[in-house]
């Protein structure tokens, strides 16, 4: 097994295109090291991107933020700008593993690992995040929901490296939130995860909403019907009931050690309601200037 740690993205891309056999790109390593130790993977090349400075930063861009592939979850949750603009995304990153794990783990890695239960992915999908991939043919920009294609699988080509994830600007009176269900209180993996991003107008009517579900299908789902259930409403009980119904209806989960089909389907609706209320509250608070206030 060969280990390489290039210092430029060009260097990384060229190492990757020259590589034969099985390659794994290492960012935080919180999945890959565990998979290596558990003898689940046996790569020929480990390509460590943490020495590439440009992927280890969060930078402001067009009113949003570009999150480098090497940025740890802790960097994200400690970044006031991201916390203010996309608190749901930051919170999702703050749920991955433990405090120690978050010091290493990245949301880019969380996405590339391809788990349907990845905590940060539903929040990123709801946020309309855009992924920047760099390969031998240049840059490719892809909506985050198009990255996962199945458990452990993504649409990223073997010759491409995930460079960064862009979180866009939002209209005023927008809010997002993420909740997951786990039987414990932390250090666990989502049985169901729900990310919602929405925008309200001056009379508190929802004008835009994106609802994403994790751990209820082979990939994270963007559920348009669920978003539609909120749009045009004041996030009232009727809209919330409709949200829950559409969210549950979109589920296509499996029975496994973490939860039953019946349970996951039901919980998706329950959580969607709770997440929508938090996102709406945040959208309303945006105007009153309480953005980013930590509770």
């Amino acid at each position: 097994m060969n280990y390489q740690a290039p210092t430029t993205i060009e260097g990384a891309v060229s190492l990757l295109s020259e590589a034969s056999g099985n390659t794994r790109i290492l960012a935080g390593g919180t999945d890959i090291i565990v998979q290596l130790n558990g003898e689940h993977i046996d790569p020929d090349l480990i390509l460590d991107i943490k020495r590439i400075n440009e992927v280890c930063n969060i930078s402001a861009e067009n009113g949003g933020f570009r999150i480098g592939a090497g940025v740890s979850c802790s960097q994200l949750t400690e970044h006031q700008g991201v916390m203010d603009l996309w608190p749901g995304c930051a919170e999702a990153a703050g749920l991955i593993g433990s405090t120690q794990v978050q010091g290493r783990a990245t949301i880019a890695g969380n996405l590339c690992n391809g788990s349907p239960a990845a905590d940060s992915v539903p929040a990123l999908v709801a946020a309309q995040a855009i992924v920047r991939l760099i390969g031998p043919d240049g840059i490719r920009e892809v909506p985050v929901e198009n990255i996962p294609t199945g458990p452990g699988q993504t649409s990223i080509a073997p010759s491409e490296i995930l460079h960064s994830i862009f979180l866009p600007s939002t209209p005023s009176r927008s809010g997002d939130a993420y909740l997951r269900f786990i039987p414990r209180t932390e250090m666990d993996i989502a049985v169901v995860g729900v990310g919602i991003s929405l925008t309200l107008d001056e009379s508190d009517i929802c004008t835009a909403a994106r609802v994403a579900l994790g751990a209820v299908a082979k990939t994270v789902l963007l559920v348009e019907e669920a978003g539609a259930a909120l749009i045009g409403s004041k996030i009232d009980d009727n809209a919330l009931d409709q949200l829950a119904l559409t969210a549950s209806a979109a589920c296509n989960p499996i029975d496994d050690k973490r939860g039953t089909i019946e349970f996951r389907t039901k919980i998706a609706g329950v959580l969607a309601k709770r997440v929508a209320l938090i996102a709406a509250q945040r959208a309303r608070e945006r105007v009153t200037g309480r953005i980013g206030e930590k509770s």
């Binding site: 039987p183 414990r184 209180t185 932390e186 250090m187 666990d188 993996i189 496994d256 050690k257 973490r258």
Partner: peptide
């Protein structure tokens, strides 16, 4: 009482031989 337990498939194989899915309480629980 709440979450621990051996989970077996019909194949007689333990499905949760690790602390991720054999859910012992963590401190915050």
């Amino acid at each position: 009482a709440l979450n621990e337990g051996y989970i077996y498939g019909d194949d007689g194989i333990m499905q949760n031989p690790g602390f991720l899915d054999y859910r012992m309480p963590v401190c915050s629980d």
